[in-house]
Design a protein around this nucleic acid. Structure first.
Lengths: 220, 220
DNA sequence: CTGCATCCACTTTGATACTG
DNA sequence: CAGTATCAAAGTGGATGCAG
């Protein structure tokens, strides 16, 4: 373990010692959007070796970032989730992702869009002012995954999975591949979606989440 | 290089591919506070192997984060500096450092405080409101290093090195080891410093940079 | 002196196979 | 489902050498 240490009394160095290893922050991104079991993480992070996942989870658990939970009745098995300390990494993850977004370039054929990155984008672009006082919930179905966006009195929660309780509006986007966040908003803005529920809530998503550039590119 | 790729079209993954390798963000932290030559970096990042530094600098240069410059007349040699893209990593570095600060714990005897982390702390805690319209400059001398803090019409620039032009106030803190940012502010607040210049600017530093908790711990 | 390149021991990672 | 075991390949750390 001494090899990992930088020997610096510095927040950045300490952060890198704790979550700077390969795959660590991607695991944390997954857990920020949904508690996962071991095999979920293997699926969501294709390419991660099983032993590395196993090692990272142990390390992250040891330093109090990740928690093992025994899953409740219906599922059973082990669930990994973030502790409060782990959750507090969210702003750092969002800031790094924001920088990385500007250097994404064109999507390669070999690259897939992680659903959790779309959920994170909802958090990053949330316009709290536009949502002030609002309570509403959406469920977005696309490429075989489900994403929930719930706003309760202006507070956002979003992640992978079904909305609970029942969402006010279900939005279905037909797509074989997972679309990017931008593509999702574009589909919504251009009406290329199927809806089920309170359709008047469709436009609200755009108002609340579309960044200025995107609005411009949509001609609004 | 294919090994480094995560195969994800995601800002976080891309960021980690570009600056996620060992030592990379620490190099960037150094360059955020002062352009450096190769040997400066070796000194400022004790423990980094020469070949790793060399490799990182090449990689970071190749992806447009770092620039090689031929140093001007007096010094000669090669200077490494951040490009604009590199500078834009600052918010990510600050956010990560902020999280890491909360997990620093007690300083170990084997740990040193990197001067650049103190400069970064000045940026992180800068209270723009308190500095609105102000123009003033400080130079802090301690443990053999010099730190400048310059505010021009409310805009902060800070880093390692002398202030130019001449600072309004020079503050000397006697200390063998580099003190932490908190220790610097504490020394200033408690008057355990020597000054040279416009002494009335001493208190302003506290008003502008002390975070609320620190003010509380100082009994203000 | 600066700015690396080279060499070697060691560690981490990736890929695959296998087990309770 | 939730990991271990194994092994090759790549990366890292430490020391040294060397040209400009």
């Amino acid at each position: 373990m001494a090899r990992k240490d930088f020997g610096q009394y510095c927040g950045l160095a300490r952060a890198l010692e704790l979550v700077g290893e390969r795959w660590a922050l991607l695991i944390i991104r997954e857990l920020l959007t949904h508690p996962s079991r071991y095999t979920d993480l293997l699926e969501d992070l294709p390419g991660i070796p099983t032993n590395v996942l196993s090692t990272r989870l142990k390390e992250l658990e040891q330093v109090g970032i990740v928690e093992r939970q025994v899953a409740p009745a219906p599922q059973r098995g082990v669930l990994y989730a973030l502790t409060e300390d782990g959750q507090s990494l969210q702003s750092a993850v969002l800031t790094l992702a924001l920088w990385g977004n500007s250097r994404l370039g064109e999507q390669q054929a070999s690259e897939f869009v992680p659903p959790s990155s779309v959920a994170m984008a909802f958090r990053a672009t949330f316009n709290a002012q536009a949502a002030e006082g609002l309570s509403a919930s959406w469920e977005i179905h696309t490429a075989g995954v489900m994403l929930y966006v719930v706003i309760t009195k202006g507070q956002l929660t979003t992640g992978i999975g079904p909305a609970s309780p029942d969402p006010d509006l279900v939005i279905t986007i037909r797509s074989a591949q997972m679309p990017t966040f931008q593509a999702v908003l574009k589909a919504i803005a251009s009406g290329k979606v199927e809806t089920n529920g309170r359709e008047e809530l469709l436009g609200a998503l755009i108002e609340i989440f579309a960044p200025a550039e995107l609005l411009a590119s949509l001609g609004r």
